[in-house]
């Protein structure tokens, strides 16, 4: 296993630890993307984030990957800090497996990702209000009915 794979595995493992203990093994081992959508989204996008973190931090790649993960966690049973906390774990995981990397620059990139993650989290939560509003509009959208309901 390459160092990068090892980091990814550990990062993934630390991330899914936040889920109920009974489910962790399922999230980790079930590889069918439709049977295990949460695990799949995490794995796929953590990989992108890690590659970017060790590489060029290309916004066009980090942003969608972060979005995909945060979108899931924003509606699960997590507080805001829990929802984005997985980013910070990367610091110790990289330190553990690849001490040759420049701690300072990794740390900076992790911070950068974390800030983006917070933004994304807030955006998702705002989106909830927006879609809630849209839904109630659609639920009663025939003007004639709206005018006469309850009359």
């Amino acid at each position: 296993m390459s160092t990068e794979d090892a980091i990814l595995e550990r990062w993934f493992a630390r991330t899914v630890e936040a889920y109920p203990g009974e489910t962790v093994l399922f999230l980790t081992t079930e590889r069918d993307q439709f049977r295990n959508p949460v695990g799949h989204i995490l794995r796929e996008n953590l990989e992108v984030l890690l590659r970017e973190l060790l590489g060029g931090m290309e916004l066009s790649r980090t942003k969608p990957a972060l979005e995909a993960i945060i979108r899931v966690r924003a509606v699960q049973d997590f507080t805001a800090t829990q929802a984005v906390g997985f980013i910070f774990m990367l610091r110790s995981v990289v330190g553990e497996f690849a001490p040759e990397h420049d701690v300072l620059s990794i740390g900076q990139k992790v911070d950068q990702l974390a800030l983006m993650a917070f933004d994304e989290y807030v955006r998702c939560r705002e989106k909830l209000y927006e879609i809630r509003l849209n839904e109630s509009r659609r639920a009663l959208s025939v003007p004639a009915a709206m005018a006469r309901v309850g009359s």
């Binding site: 203990g21 009974e22 489910t23 962790v24 093994l25 399922f26």
Partner: peptide, 8 residues
């Protein structure tokens, strides 16, 4: 014993 979901 192995699958924690079942052990639950």
């Amino acid at each position: 014993l192995w699958d924690l979901r079942l052990r639950y």
